[in-house]
Nucleic acid binder design. Sequence first.
DNA 1: AGAAATTATGTGACTTGTCACGCAATATCT
DNA 2: AGATATTGCGTGACAAGTCACATAATTTCT
Lengths: 163, 163
Amino acid sequence: MDQEARSRRQRLALRKATQDENLFGRLQAAATASRSQAQRLLSSAGGLSITQWRILWDLEEAGPLTVQDMATIQRTDHSLVSRALSVMRDKGYVETVTNPEDKRQSLIRMTAAGAHAFANAAPTMKERRESLADIFEPNEIATFLSLISRFETHLNQPSEEPK
Amino acid sequence: MDQEARSRRQRLALRKATQDENLFGRLQAAATASRSQAQRLLSSAGGLSITQWRILWDLEEAGPLTVQDMATIQRTDHSLVSRALSVMRDKGYVETVTNPEDKRQSLIRMTAAGAHAFANAAPTMKERRESLADIFEPNEIATFLSLISRFETHLNQPSEEPK
DNA sequence: AGAAATTATGTGACTTGTCACGCAATATCT
DNA sequence: AGATATTGCGTGACAAGTCACATAATTTCT
């Protein structure tokens, strides 16, 4: 290892230490790791995608629901829900009827096949949720959620006029 | 609005309230909102993608660096860095030489064109970072980072054997 | 020294997620 | 009543991000 490589190693270490304190990057990486974990768990429990799992879970808890309902619950874009539903209809997990009260809306309900896929994934995902209690006290989770809320509120503020 | 719609509205509200306390979903949504904000800001400041911005920033602060270095700093996968670099080389923002010490490694440095693109985006991204102080005290940011660290550590643990 | 294992980078295929857009339905305004 | 604005859903194009894989280079083991 020559002087240049030593220097690069030092620069890398300093830079990494700086970025360890960068909330934006850290939040992004944690969310990404969380998502990968969910994907791995779901892959071992029937192979649902995350959005498919979320849709089935919402339908189980509160169905029948519209695309917009589920996008709201999941804090995600309706187009992602719509796209996942397309696959799920093909697989027979959900069925869709037009809402007679508003013909723009699709009302989605879970089928028996969907319930089976849900039941396959539910235990491991429940365990995942409950395992948070292994590392956080309830007040710590509340703090975490509160910090997240304040971060989100700030993101959604109109930016000030450029100076 | 008939009884069924009223019922659906109630179910939706309850379900949403439950998911408001779901740390996994909240973290994911916050990270996504943060990313969208960054994309909007960068779009108005020269049009760099987030990964391109991060690469230029790393090179500015600590370059020249390898793909692996930057993936480590950014807590992201090397393949994302590699892909972004391909575009950036085409645009003339970076140049790549093989590291004489290890011929597998590419050493990446920023060009003058890259420095120009960086300088275009840097003020707005600096302002973004600094605006966190408008909403969080330093100890609050430290708490936030600590909670994120513990969350990540937990995610990376081998899962227990299924019971 | 040679074989086997590991590592760095690039590429492919896929998912999550955004924003833009189109079209039909609904709500609001005149 | 008719015109205009808004809304719900589906689709396209793209970016962030993962994992798998290939290939060449390097390291480790025998």
